[in-house]
Design a protein around this nucleic acid. Structure first.
Lengths: 143, 143
DNA sequence: TATTAATAATTAGTATGACAAATATAATGA
DNA sequence: TCATTATATTTGTCATACTAATTATTAATA
C-alpha cells in the first residue's frame, strides 16, 4: 500500500473527532447543560464507578493526571463532584458525585445519549463493530 | 440498538486520536524535527497547494481561523512559512513555504509517512476503506 | 455616494492535552 | 530506623480548539 495515503486517516480521525465533540457541545448548550463534553465523561464514569481515586479515574476515562486534576477542579467548583480524603492514604482522594451531581447526571443522560446516537444514523451495527475493532487495533499498535 | 453503547465510540475515537498524535509527536522528537503534528499538517498542505489565503488553508486543513492564525504565527517564527500581502485584497495574505520550509518539508516527509504507517500494521486495505467511509459518514451526519 | 452588510484575519478568554517538574506521602530495603 | 524509591496529586508551560468580539477592508444596495 502506498505510504502516502496514510496521512489521510489521521486527518479524518482528527476532523471527525472534533466534529463529534462540537456537535455534542452544541446540544449541551441548547439544553443549557452547564458542562463540557469532557466533563460529562467524568460525571458519567463516576455515576458507574463512584469513589475512585484520581489515578483510577484517569485510567477509566483515558485522561492524564494533570488534565483530570483540572477537570475535577471545575466539576468541584460547579458543585457536581467532591474530593474526600482517602482514609488510609493521605496522598489520595476518593472522588464522588454530590447529590446535585447525581441529580444532574441523571437529568442530562438521556439528551446526551440522544446526541451520541445522531452520529450513527447512517451506519449499521456491523460498522459499529468494525469501527471499534479498527480503533482498538490502532491503539494497541501504537502502545 | 441500545442508546447506551453509543457513548463508547466517541470515547474510543478520542482516545485513539490522541494516541496517534502522541505517537507521531514522539517520533518527531526522536528525529529532532522542530515541529508539532498539527504544524506538519499545514506544511504538508502548503507543499501541495501553495499560495492559499488563510480561509482556503483553514478549509483544506480543517482548522478554524483562530487556530490557523496561531499555527501560522509559529511556523513564521520558525522561518518555515511566510505571509505575503494578497495583491488584490488588502484584508488577506497568501501563505507560502519559504525555501527553508520547502527543504524541511521534503526532508521530514519520509519519516512522517513511516510513523503514520505504524498505526496500520495489523489492519487490512478493506479496514482502511471501511474506516474512511465510516468517519466520513459520521462527519456528514453531524454537519 | 453613503450606508450597510459581508469577508479576512486577529485577539481574548476558557478548556483540554502533552510533558516535565514539584510536593507530599507511603513503601522498601540496608 | 534511615535512606531510597515509588506513588498520588498538583503546578507550570506551551499548543490546540471553540466561541465571541474586534479590526480592517471590500461588496452590495438604497
Amino acid at each position: 500500500m502506498a505510504t502516502e495515503k496514510f496521512s489521510t486517516y489521521s486527518y479524518l480521525l482528527d476532523r471527525t473527532n472534533r466534529k463529534i465533540k462540537q456537535y455534542a457541545q452544541q446540544k449541551f448548550k441548547e439544553e443549557n447543560f452547564d458542562i463540557t463534553v469532557d466533563q460529562w465523561l467524568i460525571l458519567k464514569n463516576l455515576s458507574i464507578h463512584n469513589d475512585q481515586n484520581q489515578s483510577q479515574l484517569a485510567e477509566l476515562t483515558g485522561k492524564d493526571h494533570p488534565t483530570l486534576t483540572r477537570i475535577l477542579d471545575l466539576l468541584c467548583k460547579k458543585g457536581l463532584v467532591e474530593r474526600k480524603a482517602a482514609p488510609n492514604d493521605r496522598r489520595s482522594f476518593n472522588i464522588h458525585l454530590t447529590e446535585f451531581g447525581i441529580q444532574k447526571q441523571k437529568e442530562w443522560a438521556p439528551k446526551v445519549a440522544e446526541a451520541r446516537m445522531k452520529a450513527w444514523e447512517n451506519l449499521t451495527e456491523q460498522d459499529y463493530e468494525d469501527l471499534k475493532r479498527i480503533l482498538n487495533t490502532i491503539y494497541q499498535s501504537l502502545s
